[in-house]
């Protein structure tokens, strides 16, 4: 805007000063973020005696397992591809559930007065302060056949439901763990939304649903994309939830990495992690590209 020219030089100096101040952080980030990643890549492309190899990578794509189909015939499946697709499916379901649950919560939060907002925020954050294992065990006691839900059901005279060890139980666990990561980015875009825009839409003939469809939703898309990224990525690579709540019936890619690692198969574990990372990077890239394309019309 109408700034005097001299400010430009000053700004450059400031940026230079900022960079110097950032140096310790840059070093820290290099040491604790880049170096471990480099090690993962290094292990992924080497064998037990640290010779370069594609063996681990190709094993991920080619390893097969015999499995009995329902009709009794034996089929051969690509082990890790199937595990990956299963992880993707569960993660996608959990993300969708998080979005459907989180969107109205975020909206209500953003539109409440400051005190209610703070309370809701705390309520949403509290589970995050609790250990992940404890949370998962808590869900076992709630969901198991003799658990809280079934005792409540039988108390009111309804027949019990079998949840533990099903896909539903795994999804419940994932949704519980990752819901805050969906709500927070949604809440942050919605809180910034100008109430006047919603009033303007009403003024121009939109009913409640029209306002949601034509103004609130399009303006919240960046938050939706962020929320999906924040939930989808950790839930793809999640482990333990599936072991405990799924009774080990839903072996996920995170469990595979953990399994290979505990079996001291470090190189193959690294290879799975590496491939997962690349796939997630591609995922994120596509999302970023989609948002940018949407924003392109705005800039």
């Amino acid at each position: 805007m109408g700034r005097p020219r001299g400010d430009n030089a000053m700004e450059k100096n400031l940026i230079r000063a900022d960079r110097t101040a950032l140096a310790p952080y840059t070093a820290w980030a290099a040491l604790f973020i880049v170096v471990p990643l480099a090690f993962v890549a290094y292990y992924a492309f080497t064998d037990a005696s640290f010779n370069f190899t594609f063996e681990n990578i190709s094993r991920f794509f080619t390893a097969t397992t015999q499995t009995a189909s329902e009709d009794g015939s034996v089929r051969e499946i690509r082990t890790y591809i199937v595990i990956f697709m299963r992880s993707l499916k569960l993660a996608a379901i959990s993300t969708a559930v998080c979005l459907v649950m989180g969107y109205p919560i975020a909206y209500i939060m953003a539109r409440s007065d400051a005190r209610v907002q703070k309370t809701l925020m705390t309520v949403i954050m509290i589970p995050m302060w609790m250990n992940f294992l404890i949370r998962t065990y808590a869900w076992i006691t709630i969901l198991q056949d003799t658990g809280l839900i079934n005792r409540l059901l039988s108390a009111v005279g309804l027949s019990p439901v079998h949840i533990i060890g099903t896909q539903t139980a795994v999804v419940v666990g994932m949704v519980y763990d990752y819901l805050p990561y969906m709500i927070l980015p949604l809440y942050s875009v919605m809180a910034k939304m100008d109430v006047k825009l919603l009033e303007a839409a009403q003024d121009l003939g939109c009913s409640g649903l029209g306002v949601l469809r034509r103004v609130i939703w399009p303006l919240s898309v960046p938050g939706v994309i962020n929320g999906i990224t924040m939930v989808l990525i950790p839930s793809i690579s999640t482990f333990y939830i599936s072991q405990k709540l799924g009774d080990g019936k839903f072996f996920l890619i995170g469990d595979a990495i953990e399994g290979q690692y505990t079996a001291n198969n470090l190189h193959f574990a690294a290879a799975i992690a590496f491939i997962l990372m690349i796939l997630l990077l591609i995922c994120m890239g596509v999302m970023r590209w989609l948002t940018d394309k949407k924003r392109g019309g705005l800039a």
């Binding site: 100008d194 006047k196 825009l197 009033e199 303007a200 839409a201 103004v215 399009p218 303006l219 019309g297 705005l298």
Partner: peptide, 8 residues
């Protein structure tokens, strides 16, 4: 007051 035009 501040026009409330739709930014999207």
């Amino acid at each position: 007051q501040r026009y409330a035009l739709f930014p999207h």
